[in-house]
Amino acid sequence: MTTNDYIRGVKQEGWPPFRGRLWQRNYWEHIIRSEQSYLTIARYVADNPHRWYADQLHPQGQPTP
């Protein structure tokens, strides 16, 4: 459904097309088996958007040290 919405957005809403892959290959799920595992994953999810600005693939340039 998400891919179809994206294609519709590109064709009808003027969204910029993405020429690469839309979905990550080799994705795997992880079963949370302990509170420590849960806390580690929750911290990763909460912090991940902030790390995007330092990522080498961020469109605004290279990461800062």
Rank of each mutant, 00 (worst) to 15 (best):
S34C: 05
N4G: 01
T40W: 04
Q12E: 15
T2V: 07
A42I: 12
N26R: 04
V10H: 09
I41G: 01
Q60G: 09
L22I: 02
H50G: 10
D5Y: 08
W28H: 10
Y6W: 14
Q56L: 03
D47N: 02
A54V: 08
R25C: 06
Q56F: 03
H30Q: 12
G9W: 03
P65H: 15
G20M: 05
P49M: 00
W52P: 00
R19Y: 05
P59G: 02
P65D: 14
P17Y: 10
T3P: 00
H58N: 12
L22S: 03
I31S: 09
T3E: 13
R8I: 06
G20V: 00
R21C: 14
V10S: 06
T40K: 09
R33V: 00
W23A: 08
S37W: 03
I7R: 06
Q62F: 15
L57E: 09
W23V: 07
A54W: 14
A54P: 03
R19H: 10
Q12K: 14
I41T: 09
Q24I: 12
D5W: 06
Y6K: 06
I41K: 01
T64S: 15
W52D: 03
L39G: 03
Q24H: 11
G20I: 00
W52H: 05
Y53V: 04
A42G: 09
Y44S: 10
P49I: 01
G14C: 01
P63A: 04
R25Q: 14
T3Q: 05
L22G: 06
P17T: 06
R19I: 04
G14F: 08
I41E: 11
I41C: 00
G14R: 00
P17V: 05
S37L: 04
S37N: 08
Q60C: 07
E13K: 12
M1I: 11
T3M: 04
D47Y: 02
E13Y: 13
P65E: 12
W23Q: 12
Q56R: 08
E29N: 07
N26Q: 02
G61M: 07
M1G: 09
S37P: 00
P59W: 14
Y27C: 08
P17A: 05
I31G: 08
G61F: 11
I32E: 08
I31Y: 11
H30E: 13
R51P: 00
P59M: 08
W15H: 11
W15Q: 09
Q12V: 07
D5K: 07
R51H: 02
N26M: 01
P59R: 05
R25A: 11
V10I: 13
G20Y: 07
R43I: 05
Q62W: 15
A46Y: 15
I31Q: 13
T40I: 13
Y44M: 12
G9P: 04
L57K: 02
P17S: 07
R8M: 03
Q62A: 14
Y6S: 01
W28C: 04
E35G: 01
I32V: 13
Q12H: 15
Q36P: 03
E13W: 14
